[in-house]
Write a protein that binds this DNA or RNA. Structure first.
Lengths: 221, 221
DNA sequence: GACTCCCTTCTTGCATGCAACATAAGCTGT
DNA sequence: ACAGCTTATGTTGCATGCAAGAAGGGAGTC
């Protein structure tokens, strides 16, 4: 399908994105092309292309003739992105409910069981992974490839992993979140698009408020 | 704000996008980097970066080691994109209604008057422009910069201009569309977020069905 | 001591050269 | 005539070289 070089390039973009998202660089720090080029043993040209793409994704800012800087989303941007997240995931839930994809439904049921187990054992790391999987399963289950694509862009911008780790620290949030997931799943099982959309939006809205209540250092700008 | 080089590069990207969207190249035709480089009197490198970006926007497809091809959205993709459009514009209308931006409101009122005049005189070209302006005014009026950004990406993928020109050809659609615009505006004026979202989604849905009913050559794939 | 100017250094932006690969045409043998 | 192979061409992918600009530091001056 994809030639070897293309796959390598994808990997390069992903690798650089991981490096940026992973927090290995302090926010606002400069990321020289030459360093990345040496790090991944390629020329500056493919690194440039990848950084250009990351700029369009909003993860870095390229100041012309100055340098490439890791860009931390501002609090306002996080609010804005969560509004879009709410809308898109609502759409995804609605589409999945209308479609009634059986494989996704069973995956979601399984996910919910695992999530409840993780809540009981207080396994926040597993829970974070399951939440991620739950949302992505619904989006993919919408059977709308363009939606999947745009959703991926959105999530990249949100630097989601850092945030979700923060929300799960709130006491009681895990249980509440799981209840909301169950509500969404039930609406989808009943093939109720409007109900599913409403439940999903309600859930995302609640989770966004949780993610934003904590005044964290990296969100103070 | 933007340095000269950055502005030039933006212009280069926009210029190439216009060329691709403008239909100067037959869909599926190859667009060699070297040609564009000579056309705009730059090296292949910035052309490459621009094409790379256009690929991520979904307008062209770069087959490795083969060439760059103009990519026409399939009918399925258009349906998918319209679903997202409905969701995002619904969000925008909702946000604008909640906010109650006065400058946007007056702009929309003026737009509606002009639109009705264009309907009476059957000026389809002016109407297409006004429709475009109406929707963008609402999206910008949401005061959500990230939404504006994502919406722009979406519209680029839809190759909107070609489609809107097609919808206005349907008899009676102009008047119906204007009525729907008025409904949206009234909901926003009443500061009714839910009503505004519903009206907007209804409008987009109707317009998408119009855009998709016509079996046009370029949409047959 | 503070301010201004220049210069050094680091970064990106672009042009160009070369290699690799995919595709298609031509050639040869059957 | 046709199938398989070879070759020719066109394209992208990447490496490298060079120039231009921006930021910071240091020297000189008031």
């Amino acid at each position: 399908m994809l030639s070897v070089e293309a796959a390598e390039r994808e990997n390069l973009l992903d690798k650089i994105r991981m490096l940026v998202l992973g927090g290995d660089f302090p926010p606002g720090a400069v990321v020289p092309e030459a360093f990345l080029a040496q790090e991944f043993d390629v020329s500056r040209t493919p690194v440039r292309e990848a950084l250009k793409q990351l700029q369009h994704e909003g993860l870095v800012e390229i100041r012309p003739k100055v340098g490439t800087f890791v860009r931390e989303p501002t609090r306002r941007e996080i609010i804005e992105l969560f509004q879009i997240k709410e809308s898109l995931e609502g759409l995804a839930a609605s589409l999945l409910a209308r479609r009634g994809g059986t494989t996704e439904l069973s995956a979601l049921r399984l996910n919910l069981e695992d999530s409840e187990a993780a809540v009981l054992t207080d396994d926040t790391e597993a829970y974070a992974r399951l939440v991620h999987e739950f949302h992505w399963t619904i989006v993919r289950g919408s059977d709308n490839l363009k939606l999947v694509e745009h959703y991926g862009r959105l999530m990249n911008q949100l630097a989601y992993q850092r945030l979700v780790l923060r929300t799960v620290e709130h006491p009681g949030r895990l249980a509440a979140s799981t209840r909301e997931h169950r509500a969404v799943l039930e609406m989808i099982e009943h093939k109720d698009p409007f109900g599913a959309e409403a439940a999903m939006r309600n859930h995302v809205h609640a989770s966004s408020r949780e993610a934003l209540t904590e005044p964290v250092q990296s969100l103070r700008n």
